[in-house]
Amino acid sequence: MPTVTMTVNGRQVSGEVEPRTLLVEFLREGLGLTGTHVGCDTSQCGCCVVHVDGKSVKSCTMLAVQADGAEVTTIEGLAADGQLHPLQQAFHENHGLQCGFCTPGMIMSSLELLQRNPDPTEAEVREWLEGNLCRCTGYHNIVKSILAAAAAMRGTAQAAE
């Protein structure tokens, strides 16, 4: 079986995997990082979104061997030094989650949106979320959370200037 080595949430890890092992399976079963969820089998739901080399990726559409040597960030790696990321904080404050199952994917996906576009409109947020399904919230508070996080992150960025 091939061995893969990658950096996950800042920590170098390696493991033996079958060639057919998906990245999400490696993260969940191999590393015990169960915050990344599996909600479908057609790469539609977005529950499994993680960042690979800074880009949001559905980890159910990628083989673990394809991530060999990559830098992977999962939901578990987002909070720094016990401080919630502004997106995590905003989802909490704006009731952007109910059952919580889609939440890690929603947060990891919208993280890339805000990296690309720090000041998105509501329509841009809704369009970006096309690859993420939620059955609980009707998206209303998810959109609100992402807009609130964007504002908070812009505020922090300005303060730093």
Partner: peptide, 19 residues
């Protein structure tokens, strides 16, 4: 009141059956 249960879900520490 913002929800108590949120912290574990937004940090990936929920515990679903498949976990």
């Amino acid at each position: 009141v913002p929800r108590k249960e949120d912290h574990r879900f937004v940090t990936g520490h929920g515990r679903y059956t498949d976990d």
